[in-house]
Design a protein around this nucleic acid. Structure first.
Lengths: 154, 154
DNA sequence: CAACAGTCTTTGCTTGCGCAACCTTCGTAA
DNA sequence: TTACGAAGGTTGCGCAAGCAAAGACTGTTG
């Protein structure tokens, strides 16, 4: 058999559409309200949740779903605007910490409500509790579980 | 209330993770098997399904979920490799058709099985019929229905 | 029939990201 | 100890895509 069954096809379309639609709206909301990118916010929030408001670059790249080079550049930008700084890692001298500054923390405090509202509006509030549950169950089969991920952009 | 409920948060994470994971794998599969981009393939397949194997640029941009400028460039590339050609639109002289060439058709015939297998492997086969159904139902609430969309990348 | 607001497409510009190559450091094995 | 493969991070490079503005055309309204 070479074709997808109609149900599979429909699910696949829905998957692609939902993804594009939701992400675009979140990006737009955040940009309009605060001039911040979703990726930037994601870095900030990951650090915000992390113990010591810091994370190793590699760890950060996994949580934010970017390649190492992508994260390097993104942290560069955030460092340039003073929201994040780098720190040398004592236990492994190859390593680098990305550390949320106090300016970064303040920024998160400001932006997070905006983003929460956006997630609720474009995602959570559109689904019943049952649907949410079913959705989670299905989606979690699609992505290999990554341990200890606090969130991505809550 | 300002926080997301735990269930909502978990669903949200799953949504982001599934998206990143699945799309990356599809992209990688297609690239490895045929050197083709997902976006390129999507254009080809949209045209393949369309009446007259042609679509107006605007219509195409909606189906492929790119901005007009993005589609212009993407069609440029596909035209350069002879898989698509442009045609002037008689009924509206502002318009342009993107038309699948016979080389393009052949390419679709070759690549589609690869892509189908990939979609099945990373998406459809991981879900039971019930899950597929529930997933569809939930996801369709997240994206405003776009009429008459044959598919995106089946 | 003119004027004009809206639509379709393209172009200039900018940016963000991935890949591959590189350097440093680590840890293990000879 | 030295050697060496692997891991962490950064860099050069190329490219794809978005925004905004421009050009061509439409059809509607005065």
């Amino acid at each position: 058999m070479s074709e997808l069954k109609p149900g599979e096809l429909r699910a696949w379309r829905a998957f692609l559409d939902a993804q594009a639609s939701v992400m675009r709206q979140l990006e737009a909301d955040l940009l309009a309200a605060d001039g911040m990118t979703l990726a930037e916010f994601d870095v900030l929030i990951q650090l915000w949740f992390a113990a010591g408001v810091r994370l190793r670059m590699t760890e950060l790249s996994e949580r934010v779903r970017l390649t190492p080079s992508g994260i390097t550049r993104l942290v560069d930008r955030l460092a340039r605007t003073g929201l994040v700084r780098r720190g040398r890692c004592a236990s492994d001298r190859r390593g680098t910490w990305a550390i949320l500054t106090s300016a970064g923390r303040q920024r998160v405090d400001k932006v997070r409500p905006i983003h929460l509202r956006s997630v609720r509006r474009h995602f959570a509030s559109r689904l019943s509790a049952d649907q949410l549950q079913a959705l989670t169950c299905a989606l979690e089969r699609l992505a290999p579980a990554v341990p200890l991920r606090v969130s991505s952009a809550i």
